[in-house]
């Protein structure tokens, strides 16, 4: 039966809802952790969607799949990228009390967290698919 997949999916969506709610509250009150949570989320979206386009290009390079993925994932990555760019503006960083950080250092830490998250995501997806196949 697939019931555990249904529970897992809804559990992940529920945890995601909690994280997004936390990011919304943190950003509303101007907490520094709110900036990190929100910016990591959007940066992760950029990485996921760019990786999605690359995976389709390698695994399923048919015109239809390619154009659909490039439009869908490309738009998402572009919008999320613009939001990350906005969150690096001086007035936004000042609001989150991050003006003492250099942007290079902020970006470096953000890239480290995001790529680490992607590695963890990749591993989890592999494990879940392996479990589904078995």
């Amino acid at each position: 039966t697939l019931s555990w997949v249904i529970f897992l999916t809804s559990g992940i969506v529920f945890i995601l809802a909690g994280l997004i709610l936390a990011a919304a509250i943190g950003m509303w009150i101007g907490a520094t952790w709110g900036w990190w949570l929100g910016t990591t989320g959007y940066a992760f979206s950029v990485v996921l969607n760019v990786a999605g386009m690359m995976i389709v290009t390698v695994m399923n390079p048919q015109a239809e799949a390619l154009s659909s993925s490039y439009i869908k994932n490309g738009t998402r990555a572009f919008i999320a990228g613009l939001i990350v760019l906005y969150l690096f503006q001086d007035n936004v960083l000042a609001y989150f009390r991050l003006q003492n950080w250099s942007k290079g250092k902020l970006f470096g830490v953000l890239a480290g967290i995001t790529l680490g998250l992607y590695a963890a995501h990749f591993l989890i997806v592999q494990i879940v698919f392996a479990a589904l196949v078995v």
Binding site: I6, F14, I20, A24, M27
Partner: peptide
């Protein structure tokens, strides 16, 4: 420091996303 307008817009969008997630959760489980 005053809250930038873009941050307020993002917070509203995030709030809508939370509601959507809960809606999806309820739908998956029912």
């Amino acid at each position: 420091v005053k809250r930038p307008i873009g941050v307020s817009i993002l917070v509203v969008l995030l709030g809508i996303t939370v509601l959507l997630c809960i809606f999806i959760c309820v739908n998956i489980l029912s």
